[in-house]
Design a protein around this nucleic acid. Sequence first.
DNA 1: AGCACGCCGACT
DNA 2: GTCGGCGTGCTC
Length: 778
Amino acid sequence: MFAEIIVDIKISCENQCFDYEIPTNLVSFLKKGMGVIVPFGTKNNYRLGYVLNIKKQSSFATKQIVEILTRTLFINDELFLIADKMLETPFVTKTIVYKTIIPFVFLFSYKKKVNIQQENLVPSEIKIYLQKKKYHLSLKDPLFDNPLFKQLIKQQSLQIMNIIQAKNKPKKSFLYSLQLENLQNSNLTTKEKNFIQQFQKQLKNYNTKKELLKFASSHIINKLLQKKILNKTKQNIVEPSTNLSPFIWEWFPDIPLTVLQNYIWKQINCTFCQTYLLVYEEYKDKMAIYLKLIVENIKQKKQTLILLPEIILIQPLVTCIKKILPNLKIAVLHHKLNNESYLEQNEQIKNQQVHLVIGSRSAIFVPFHQLGGIIIDEEHDESLIEKEKTPFYDTRELAQVRAVFHHIPLILTSRTPSLESVYQIQKKKYQLLLFPVTPKISNIQLIDMKEELKKGNFEPFSDILFQNLKKAIKNKQKTLLFINAKGFSSFLLCSLCSYVFKCRRCQQNMTWFLHKNILKCRFCHHTENFSKKCFRCQQTSIRAVSFGIEYIEKILKEKFFSAKIIRLDSDTIRNNKKYEKILTIFRQKDIDILLGTEMIAKNLTIPSIYLVGIITADILLNTPTFKASEKTFQLLTKITKYNNYSNPIVIQSYNTQHYALQTILNYDLKTFYQKALQERKLSQNPPFWFVSKILISHNNFFKSSQIATNIKEHLRNYHKQEIKVFGPSVTNIKKKNNLYRFLLILKYKEWPLNLNFITEKKLQQDAYLLFDRFANII
DNA sequence: AGCACGCCGACT
DNA sequence: GTCGGCGTGCTC
């Protein structure tokens, strides 16, 4: 018998699986999905591998599997199904797929064990160094660069062995205690003295760093460590994951539902695989259904999985659920966790120590014992699609695979569902759960900025928005202003020689950032210093034709110099903590205006807002993608919700007749979806057609162009019926990592798409191919 | 990852 | 003529 194995080697050799013979004593034990140790390469170093398949014949196998790692499966049947789904995408390789779905790979590390063969030949400094490292060296240990050390290995005075080691060693941490005898002969600052007092009063003799940080900053703690007043001692903390306490399925109170919520809930069949689209208007309705599902699953001793598009949304949801079900055990998983916490959470889920898992898209790969239901929140959000690294995948699609496997419901939730999902309702693939939309007495004022121009108002604010702003500031009421343009201006023109500032690399308009005083290309991130002089005629005659968030900030400061303004965009924020901090400041302090880009729409609630202003909705409407109207509608729905429709909302646009804006006025979901779907059908775009692109990268410009043309020709000759091809065109980012990138755009009606002929006929030659199923381009 | 192989420049 | 540096390609 033979096994098909992916070996844990660098991703660069990603296409192959390796065949190994299964030794007779292991044949009855070895199963598909297990981890094994195999000899690999000329030196037969031991490497870790995962069994993908067991077969009777192999024309390649020359070596035997050494041993089985553990009896538990690393990849179970369910994960194999998910992998198969991901492998439907052309050019995606098995290795890269399995590496994304089993983060357990991190469990192991490769080390070199050094045995001294000839004591007398090894110099003492090397001996001491080895002793310090306990004769285990990491692969990149500097000692391997030492010429003497190299020679000792060559002459076999030292023997090197490869070992595979489990990575989840017990976490090391330190305990801190006071050394009062050192207190007398040292000068202390008042802050340090205060801290020591606090320590004596409120803390135990030994404390973790976390406890100390409640009373002092890490700076002070470090200072005191230097002065030897604080002492730290090592301590091995017992991992919570090693404590396999049996899970108790406690009793949880029933969730009371309103008549309407109950009506919706009754339509969900918990023992049947069905995708539901839950369209809600009020947050509390959605939460009621979520909580009900969680509690019902617990009654059946099953776990629930909730997926969110953004990491920042996780904590608020956890808090909200804990408020109602304080005893609920929740695991949080997302792609920014470090390996240790990821493994810890994973263990807990596997050992049935949590009722609920909340995570971002990557949590879709978490193995469950008894999964009772999957919820995907904000299902329209594009962040649910992984597009940062291959393999690209749509979380909703993979969730469906899991739902089928477990025979459980999959609930997609949104106030403004994606057009794809609405289309699935029409095709009767999904079931609609609709909280009836209540018609509103609209407070939204849609301002035609063309009229303002005619009146002679060239400011970014219309009269009405300006008056409302004035009133809000006077009455100390909070305002939210939204503009979807970064920087100061994204269109700079020399008024003397009509030179337009374009990116040297990709010929797109450069955006001027006022504070950093740079020009930056929003496509390839090429950055240049900006001297406010025209590159061509060297005159200071630059005119900003369009305006961005920095421009608005400047105007606001000029017009309302007493107002306190806080800005929130991806340039002022580096991480989620900063995001929360800005929102907290806005909530607590007397900030008048919150000015933000698309980022402000990521959060759930920004309370106590009086006025909502949207400056130029056109920027959204005119982004070059077929998703423009959908995105506009979704974003504006979210932003206009912030003041609960009870207070003034002003939307400014040059194109007031666009259906996405007209339907926003009275929150007319039905008309919007009707018109948007019609538009997509006419333009042959999703959900009626699949739009994808093939990216061809090669370090030779002509060769990559040639390959692109060859692929196109082949598609035209043999697949003219099913696939429309556009291109090849050079991408915006012309040159990245010294690779020239060409792209072909494909439109087709059937998925999965079989493009095997490209790799079979080696049309790609030595170019790198990437298939992007979720292309947003027109 | 880690090793072999091959090409090229520098030095016996 | 050979030694070693680095770039490339293969490992069941």
